[in-house]
Amino acid sequence: MSARPAGGRRVALVTGAVGGIGAAVCRRLAAEGFALAVSGLERPACEELAAGLPGEGHHPVACDVTDEAAVEALFDEAETRLGPVSVLVCGAAVLLLREGGRRPLLVETTLEEWERTQAVNGRGTFLCLRSFLRRRQERPLPDGRVVTFSSVAAQLGGYRASSAYIASKAAILGLTKAAAREAAPLGITVNCVAPGLIDAPMLRLSLPPGAEGEAAAAIPLQRIGSPEEVADAVAFLASPGAGYITGATIDINGGYRMQ
């Protein structure tokens, strides 16, 4: 799987890059030859990650994806420093928890918690998608790719509350399909990954102590997944070899949900 067309390196922009899954995605895409625009809330963390990636020329960009102007500035900086973005990975997300990592029930969820979750997970994905597609309308590129992030929680209705998170990730399933139809005339595919239980900070914060064995027992493959396994799926969807897949959701859950 090559990420290098004749004109040089392709550019990938990853939001939510400094999380466990986001960092694994960045490492994998960098190893495939992409130049990475590494984006997260805090610039020092983005700088540290970018400096440790395989290859050279990766660029850190701090961005709050809920802010429309900030997202436009993110793309402006990434394309000024690296060139036009051909792959967008929308990984920025939040799961708001209560003390001890407890997921709030719907009846406990405050309006502020609801709005914050929709803003990061839903609005952030929309703003990044819109900015990317506008730019590719103006300057088309071959093998344009978008990968969004949903969750097995959205597909199952969750398993331990967190209605705000579930609703936001369910919205991304529909947004991905709508974007795929609009992007198709540009030669751009838009697909989604839906991770299950993945050994990343978000899961660790919400998993009660000693519950890993019980959680793994509910998965047909009898284990929790790794961030690298999610990154493998993202890398495939970002590749030229995935050119006839669009509007799809790839489940990465060890068989926890089958369809």
Rank of each mutant, 00 (worst) to 15 (best):
V89N: 06
A164P: 06
Y159H: 12
L82N: 00
P142F: 09
L105K: 13
Q118P: 00
V94W: 05
V147W: 04
E138L: 15
L105N: 08
R123K: 14
V87M: 09
L88G: 07
K169M: 04
G124C: 14
R145E: 06
F132Y: 15
L111E: 14
R81P: 02
S151W: 03
S131T: 14
G124F: 10
P104V: 04
S131G: 14
T109N: 02
A92E: 05
L96H: 01
A170P: 01
E99M: 02
S131Y: 01
T110I: 05
W114D: 08
K169Y: 06
R145D: 07
V94I: 09
S150I: 05
S86R: 11
T80E: 14
S168Q: 02
L106I: 12
L96T: 06
V94K: 01
A170S: 15
G100R: 07
L82F: 02
V85Q: 04
S86C: 11
L82D: 01
P140V: 08
R102Y: 01
G101Y: 00
G122N: 12
R134M: 12
F149Y: 15
L82I: 04
L127C: 13
F126I: 09
A167Y: 11
G157L: 11
G101S: 05
E112D: 13
A92K: 09
R160Y: 13
G122M: 13
V89H: 09
R81E: 12
W114T: 03
A119N: 09
G157P: 09
G124S: 14
V94T: 08
V152H: 04
T109Q: 09
A93E: 05
F149M: 15
S150D: 12
L96K: 08
P140T: 07
S163V: 15
Q118A: 10
V85K: 03
S131H: 09
Y165K: 09
L133I: 08
V89F: 11
E108P: 03
E79A: 00
R102V: 11
S163Q: 13
A161N: 15
Y159Q: 13
A153H: 10
L105T: 11
Q155I: 15
K169Q: 05
L97I: 01
F132D: 11
G124Y: 07
P142N: 14
G101I: 02
A171P: 08
C128K: 10
R145T: 08
C90P: 03
A167N: 12
S151P: 06
S151Q: 10
I166W: 06
C128Y: 09
T80Q: 13
R136P: 07
A78R: 00
R103D: 02
E113F: 02
L82K: 04
P104M: 07
P104R: 10
Y165R: 10
S131D: 12
E99P: 02
L133K: 13
R145L: 07
A93C: 03
A161I: 04
K169C: 00
G144A: 10
S168Y: 04
L97G: 01
E79M: 06
G158S: 08
G157F: 08
V87F: 10
L129G: 01
A119K: 05
L96D: 02
L106Y: 11
V147N: 04
V107L: 11
A170E: 15
V94E: 01
P140Q: 08
E77H: 03
L96G: 00
T117E: 13
T148S: 15
G158M: 07
E79R: 04
R134T: 09
E115Y: 07
G122C: 15
E77S: 14
R135N: 04
A153C: 13
